[in-house]
């Protein structure tokens, strides 16, 4: 579904991603872990071109998105993204947050977008917040809204960048539950997270990143039971 070839990203002289090649298959739940500063966010953000790769190609559903002629907006409409700090639009109601993109990109008429928003809000149990503003919500509620805002565009894949890292501990569960549900429905997901429980339970494959490389990868059971690389062992000993 997403094919990454020789992806390199440098900020000035600082090489953050060093010649990464990887493939993400439909329906996979790829969990990316690794120490802070290892390039996890940069890798994820290259997938929808929020960061422009320095070298290499990324192909999404057969279309090369790193081609300068590619319609990046049309491609991003099919890739949802959830951020660590939610990034809800504070000047809009929750309903408007959800319907803005589907309506403006002409994916839906306002009426249809409203119905979609209502259905999505029901699903995350936040329909009563439809006319509230983001400032009136808790962190967990904001992140659930951010997830359904992305879902309103009916994406083919969802990218999550540490979606629970900015949350108070008691709110992590409600967000992970929504993500699990999404995984169960068959959504293709790439998730950067420090939640090892989630990685083990939901992940179909774990990528361990360090120093701009994917140092090691495996299906979760084997990954956690038998880490091969020294740095993986060291990292796991700290987080488990």
């Amino acid at each position: 579904m997403i094919d990454v070839k020789h992806l390199t990203k440098a900020f000035g002289k600082h090489v953050v991603l060093d010649d990464i090649s990887e493939h993400i298959y439909p329906g996979e739940k790829v969990v990316v872990i690794g120490p802070s500063g290892s390039g996890k966010s940069t890798f994820l953000r290259c997938l929808n071109l929020l960061e422009e790769p320095t070298k290499g190609t990324i192909t999404f559903q057969g279309q090369e998105i790193t081609d300068p002629k590619a319609d990046i907006n049309a491609i991003r409409r099919q890739m949802g993204m959830v951020f660590q700090h939610f990034n809800l639009f504070p000047n809009m109601t929750i309903r408007k947050n959800i319907t803005l993109a589907p309506v403006q990109t002409k994916l839906m008429k306002q009426e249809e977008a409203d119905e979609t928003a209502t259905a999505l809000l029901k699903r995350v149990d936040l329909l009563d917040k439809a006319d509230s503003y983001p400032a009136q919500l808790s962190g967990g509620q904001k992140q659930r809204i951010a997830i359904v805002r992305a879902l309103a565009m009916r994406p083919k894949v969802m990218l999550f960048d540490e979606p629970t890292s900015a949350l108070d501990p008691e709110m992590v569960g409600e967000v992970l539950d929504v993500m699990k549900e999404l995984a169960d429905e068959g959504m293709t997901m790439v998730v950067v997270t420090h939640e090892m429980g989630f990685a083990r339970e939901v992940g179909s494959r774990i990528l361990f990143m360090a120093g701009g490389h994917i140092l090691e990868q495996n299906e979760p059971h084997a990954f956690f039971a038998n880490p091969k690389e020294e740095r993986t062992k060291e990292f796991l000993s700290k987080v488990l």
Binding site: R76, M81, N87, A150
Partner: peptide, 18 residues
């Protein structure tokens, strides 16, 4: 305005102008 606002908008497929 937080750069995250622009990133959220663009990640939803909105154009730079929108």
């Amino acid at each position: 305005v937080d750069i995250g606002q622009t990133e959220a908008g663009r990640s939803l497929g909105l154009t730079a102008g929108m």
